[in-house]
């Protein structure tokens, strides 16, 4: 179980979110087939879900250990990533005339 300690999970969380974000910002045609994601798209979805899962798992652990600093850091990170993603999405969608 030493590979699933908190420090490892924390690194996995950051890597998963960063990976999902990088894939998200590459052009849609590289991550989407015709009506569903392609392989790269599916890896993005899976890693993002994994990142969210790890976020809540680590949140529970930190609440239990009263590690407020760590909670703040991770929450800020994920909020920044999500905000940048939304802004990026909106700019792209607007430039394509979709919104």
């Amino acid at each position: 179980m030493k590979y699933f300690n908190k420090k490892t999970l924390n690194v996995c969380f950051y890597l998963a979110i960063i990976y999902a974000f990088i894939i998200f910002v590459i052009p849609s045609k590289y991550i989407w087939g015709v009506y569903s994601p392609n392989l790269l798209g599916w890896t993005m979805i899976v890693t993002f879900i994994l990142g969210l899962f790890l976020f809540f798992l680590l949140l529970i652990k930190d609440i239990y250990n009263k590690n407020v600093q760590s909670i703040k850091k991770r929450t800020l990170f994920i909020l920044v990533i999500i905000t940048i993603s939304i802004v990026y999405w909106y700019i792209e969608a607007k430039s394509m005339g979709n919104v």
Partner: peptide, 21 residues
Amino acid sequence: IAENLAYVIGNGNPFFGADNL
């Protein structure tokens, strides 16, 4: 669910993959 996913990845156009086809 697929439509909403396509909406997000397709930057607001869920049928963008079909359009390309």
